[in-house]
Computed example of a mutant assay.
Amino acid sequence: MKIPCFGVEEWLNVWENDAIYDIAGSSIASFTLDEIIAIGHKSKEEFFEELLKKKMNYGWIEGSPEFKKEVSKIYKNVLPDQILQTNGATGANLLAIYALIEPGDHVISLHPTYQQLYDIPRSMGADVDFWEINEENNWLPDLDELRKMIRPDTKMICINNANNPTGTVMEEVFLKELVEIARSCGAYILSDEVYKPLEEDLEIPAIVDLYEKGISTNSLSKTYSVPGVRVGWVAANAEVTDIFRKYRDYTMICDGVFDDYLATYTLANKEAVLKRNRKLVEENLSIVKEWVANEPRVSLVFPKHVSTSFIKLDIPMEIEEFCIKLLKDKGVLLVPGNRFDVPGHARLGYCAHTDVLKNGLKALSEYLRQFD
């Protein structure tokens, strides 16, 4: 099996530790362990008293009953038994593709998006077509284009909602049309949903709640600000979940006992987590909007209160070369858009801690003045 290098991860592996102002990431500013404990209803003593009693065995293979119950509350039509714990959303996406895709299958993937969603199916011998997002259409894809691409034998449509790197959201009306297109040929829809929009009065349904063959993946890494716990999950109908169980035995045994405990604690206090993160996203996005308005070399299709955005840079330089020089000269880390097959752009993770964002944007503007 041959597979290309993972463009974004390869970039971050090389350059992330050199950053003074890391505004490349796509998580909402990560919690410290102290902050996670404090956001719940236990004292530090109570938290660690429970944790220290945990037996260091394999724990619950599919995730503890408490974890699965908390995850099921995120959905409208999903029972705890339809939840399987994974190693992050990356593990969930891999599991779904590994279990369902065979050589010769037809897969349609949003593009650009998280590279897993198209390069893993291709590595397995699938025939993968790209459903392109369009900057002119606020980074949304065209449903009529999808109708032309769909085939009677299309096995799966892969989406990322909200989109990485652009932060664009497919809303409910759009998703329902997508479901009807998939239903016309019986295709699965695999939806990576790690970026929950945090706008007030904007509720985006999970694909598993809209479609009998919808598969939702998610994790604690982005919206819930705990990427270090490395816990995710996949939610699907009961029949598909049973298929996943068989394949999951070949990809992992379980997440760690401590990881499950911390993930469950975070989800049990998710309303407090989301309240903190809504405030941070709103404040940071307003900072970015003001910065873009005053920065003549940058334009942006603004994201929907999710933690990633995709700026367009008016510079006479290849984007990866620019990002390397920016990092070396100013300590500012972005992800160059060529890592998403979109030159001239860069991923701006604006949901870093606010002081990091402000200082990073100031340094970026200073660096851009050389081109005036």
Rank of each mutant, 00 (worst) to 15 (best):
132 E>D: 12
40 G>W: 08
63 G>H: 10
147 R>A: 13
57 N>K: 06
120 I>K: 05
56 M>D: 11
83 I>T: 03
80 P>Q: 11
47 F>D: 05
154 T>Y: 14
88 G>D: 09
131 W>G: 05
133 I>L: 03
90 T>W: 02
106 H>M: 11
81 D>G: 04
135 E>T: 13
69 K>V: 01
98 Y>I: 00
35 E>Q: 15
113 T>R: 07
65 P>S: 07
130 F>C: 00
150 I>S: 13
92 A>R: 09
68 K>A: 09
86 T>G: 09
159 I>M: 05
162 A>E: 09
127 D>P: 00
106 H>N: 14
169 V>N: 12
57 N>D: 15
72 S>I: 04
53 K>F: 03
127 D>S: 13
90 T>R: 13
100 L>A: 05
117 L>V: 00
94 L>D: 08
83 I>Y: 12
111 H>P: 00
81 D>P: 01
57 N>E: 13
128 V>A: 02
136 E>F: 06
143 L>N: 07
96 A>G: 08
39 I>N: 09
140 L>H: 14
118 Y>V: 00
90 T>I: 11
114 Y>I: 06
138 N>R: 15
97 I>E: 06
73 K>F: 02
103 P>W: 03
150 I>V: 15
42 K>P: 02
66 E>W: 05
71 V>N: 12
103 P>S: 03
104 G>Q: 06
77 N>F: 07
168 T>M: 01
104 G>N: 06
77 N>L: 10
46 E>P: 04
51 L>N: 06
98 Y>S: 02
96 A>D: 02
129 D>S: 14
117 L>R: 03
37 I>P: 06
